[in-house]
Design a binder for these strands. Structure first.
Length: 728
RNA sequence: GCUCGAGUGGCGGAAUUGGUAUACGCGCAACACUUAAAAUGUUGUGACCGCAAGGUCAUGUGAGUUCGAUUCUCACCUCGAGCACCA
């Protein structure tokens, strides 16, 4: 038998799978559907690093298992390619961002394809493709049409030296990242999306989805709903979440720069007493009404304030019914979404400004409003987008009156394209609609459980607030218009941990510690990289890369390869049978719970056991290959093809089932404890009774010295596991 | 400051309806094969005491509950993530 050579078999099978269309999702099928989704990458100029594939491999394993379980699986990929780094690169080099994006996506595609991820490449999308952003613009017009997109004055970060607006990310310690100048706030009219209109539903509907609890908590905290009451103390209206404590209110505090008494008094409507009005820093101007009632007996901060300034504290007051004094309201931390950027590399906002007609949407027939090709990507000195310099593009005619008009020069934030990309995957080549309702219904309507949307969405913890919330908001809006079939976009959400550099630091080009998967594939093979990334630690935890640990998974695959050359037998003894069924059960369950690390170790134990034997049965080897196939798709396909049991790809074979009755071993080891300490053990048949265990345990020679001259006060017995003698 | 996580061998980690702590892997050591090395294989590998048999200690620290605690309760320490005075 030849040696295991991943360089020979991996490209061969990748080509074959692609030609056979093995991973193409079918838009109609007699099989039940399953939609697995990873966050589509931003194709940065740094190329792929070994952290990128971790989530792709994780959901690839789930997707491959689902196919083997008989599902019609949609596992797509694309590129979230608008955004700052590419634009800044263009600014520096003068290179067209389209070219840069093309180069970067070509690199990413080649690298991802070398890993054998079962993406359906026929559905690849790119947010910077006019055929794609046409629909991003169309969706924006829907928001405009329904009054949810509006213009408002909002502050932006302004660098007075560079004369450009800065993203938060470009402001470091209040200074411009490039030149170090102190950043100023400047008011600008900005496009806004009214996400706050959906605040209640975004919070409430978290109860209907399967997200990790900490993700739900973060979303709820971000929305920040608090229910309370508005109460008037004369002309000052305050907001409180504890209106029942009003009889304990002995002062009013308004937002201010420092603690000071205003000289004013107002009447507490509950007690009819005159109370002082103060100003203090601890009251926030933009939350609630910017004023609170001070209840020092009930609120810690109010008490500290009262003690500091010798204000009265009333301890024993009676609870009030707030309806008598105020009205019930809910307040939110969530603010409307600033939706415009004064930049180039984004989707143009498809409206024109007409002197006569005002803001006029670009008609659907004229979409997409294409980004013009330009030479200079520098924003204008007035803070407008570089697009404002292209007079041939800016000057247009009003679609309504035919008079002279100017195009909007702001573009959308890069959250826009990622707020709806998962619909496009369902119908990626549709030139009539962003996606047909029929196809959305097929892919996003639940098959078995309640709740709808993408069946399983995995992403990074860094996106659990903004991206998740924004896309849920778009989904709810489109659901209300009857354009999408479910009120929530994702049924189940999980997250993965970062892969850090060997020293535990984040990988970045600037630190020079980026590990490129190409070199790993070259030296160890894609299957080894895949198994290693799954084996290295818990999937949802951040973990440091370790070059020296890669040999473990490689040795494991070598062992699997060698098993194919072992002598064969038809017999499996009962111990072997038990191990095989236990392995099926454990690997199946671990994949569902994303415990990939223990799934791999279970497979290693199985392989070690088979490796010890002179002969193995074909059945055991088949089961091993089937269970390993989602983790290491190339080596298993190669070995499967030489086995000759089937003409099919292993990836379309049936996922093994375990037999409940075979899980329990005939014999078990019973641990003997004396006063809670392990003193010995013995082997007994699995169905031995308690009485027999206790009797047999006392007869074990090494136990007797611990029992001599002692009275056994109590014997505790866990059948099949343990016995504990408590002595006096 | 608040909230949520997490602390287990030399290293990554495993084990929870409370029941053999350290699975699996890396590393290390010895041996086999080899002229030699690599690769591979075999054996060993928590700490301490002991010639050995064996014993004692050990899951961040200290208490508690229990026949029995990595797992449950309380207090504290350290690290990480998120949020910024949210009434």
């Amino acid at each position: 038998m030849s040696a295991y050579d991943p360089k020979k078999i991996e490209p061969k099978w990748q080509k074959e799978w692609e030609q056979a269309g093995l991973y193409h999702a079918e838009d109609s099928s007699s099989k039940p559907k399953y939609y697995t989704l990873i966050e589509f990458p931003y194709p940065s100029g740094d190329g792929l690093h070994v952290g990128h594939p971790r989530p792709y491999i994780g959901l690839d394993i789930v997707s491959r298992k689902r196919r083997m379980e008989g599902f019609n699986v949609l596992y797509p990929i694309g590129w979230d390619a608008f955004g700052l780094p590419t634009e800044n690169y263009a600014l520096k080099t003068g290179k067209d961002p389209r070219i840069v994006t093309k180069e970067n996506t070509d690199t990413f595609r080649r690298q991802i394809q070398s890993l054998g991820i079962s993406f359906d490449w026929s559905r690849e999308i790119n947010t910077t493709d006019p055929e794609y952003y046409k629909w991003t613009q169309w969706l924006f017009l829907k928001f405009l049409e329904r009054g949810l997109a509006y213009k408002a004055k909002m502050p932006i970060n302004w660098c007075p030296k560079d004369k450009i607006g800065l993203a938060n990310e470009e402001v470091v310690d209040g200074k411009c990242e490039r030149c170090g100048t102190e950043v100023e706030k400047r008011e600008r009219k900005q496009w806004m999306l009214a996400i706050t209109k959906y605040a209640d539903r975004l919070a409430d509907d978290l109860d209907t989805v399967d997200y990790p609890e900490r993700v739900k908590i973060q979303q709820r905290n971000w929305i920040g709903r608090s229910e309370g009451a508005l109460i008037k103390f004369d002309d000052i209206e305050i907001f409180t979440t504890r209106p029942d404590t009003i009889r304990g209110a002995t002062f009013i505090v308004m937002s201010g720069k420092e603690d000071k008494f205003t000289g004013r008094y107002v009447i507490n409507p509950a007690t009819r007493e005159k109370i002082p009005v103060w100003e203090a820093e601890y009251v926030m101007a933009d939350y609630g009404t910017g004023a609170i009632m001070g209840v020092p007996a009930d609120d810690e901060r109010d008490r500290i304030f009262a003690e500091k300034h010798h204000l009265p504290i009333v301890e024993n007051y009676t609870k009030a019914e707030f309806e008598d004094y105020g009205k019930k309201v809910a307040k939110y931390k969530l603010r409307d979404w600033v939706f415009s950027r004064q930049r180039y590399w984004g989707e143009p906002i498809p409206v024109v400004h007409c002197g006569k007609c005002g803001i006029v949407p670009v008609p659907e027939s004229e979409l997409p409003v294409k980004l013009p090709e330009i030479k200079n990507y520098q924003p204008t000195e007035t803070g407008e987008s570089p697009l404002a310099n292209i007079s041939g593009w800016v000057n247009t005619i009003c679609p309504k009156c035919g008079g002279k008009a100017k195009r909007e020069t702001d573009v959308m934030p890069n959250w826009a394209g990622s707020s709806w990309y998962f619909y496009r995957y369902c119908d990626p080549h549709n030139d009539k609609q962003f996606a047909s309702l029929e196809k959305l219904k097929y892919w996003m309507t639940p098959v078995r459980q309640s709740g709808g949307g993408v069946d399983w969405y995995n992403g990074g913890m860094e996106h659990t607030v903004l991206h998740l919330l924004y896309s849920r908001f778009w989904n709810k809006f489109l659901f209300d218009l009857g354009l999408v079939p479910t009120s929530e976009p994702y049924k189940k959400r999980t997250s993965h941990g970062l892969i850090l550099a060997e020293g535990g630091e984040k990988m970045s080009k600037s630190k020079g510690n980026v590990i490129n998967p190409d070199s790993i594939v070259e030296r160890f093979g894609a299957d080894t990289l895949r198994v290693y990334e799954m084996f290295m630690g818990p999937f949802e935890q951040a973990i440091a890369w370790s070059e020296s640990s890669l040999v473990g998974p490689r040795r494991f695959l070598e062992k699997v390869w060698k098993l194919a050359g072992k002598g064969q037998t038809l017999n499996i003894d009962s111990q072997g049978l038990t191990l095989m069924h236990q392995t099926i059960k454990k690997v199946s369950e671990d994949i569902e719970a994303m415990r990939f690390n223990t799934a791999v170790s279970t497979l290693m134990i199985f392989v070690n056991e088979l490796d010890k034997r002179e002969e193995i049965s074909q059945k055991e080897f088949e089961i091993l290959l089937l269970l390993l196939a989602p983790f290491a798709p190339h080596i298993t396909e190669e070995l499967w093809s030489t086995l000759g049991v089937s003409q099919n790809s292993i990836h379309t074979e049936k996922w093994p089932k375990y037999d409940e009755s075979k899980l329990i071993a005939d014999e078990v080891t019973i641990v003997i404890q004396v006063n809670g300490k392990v003193r010995g053990k013995f082997v007994a048949s699995a169905n031995i009774t308690k009485e027999k265990i206790i009797k047999a345990a006392q007869e074990v020679p090494e136990i007797q010295k611990w029992l001599v001259d002692k009275n056994i006060k109590k014997s505790i017995c866990v059948p099949g596991k343990l016995v504990n003698f408590v002595t006096s």
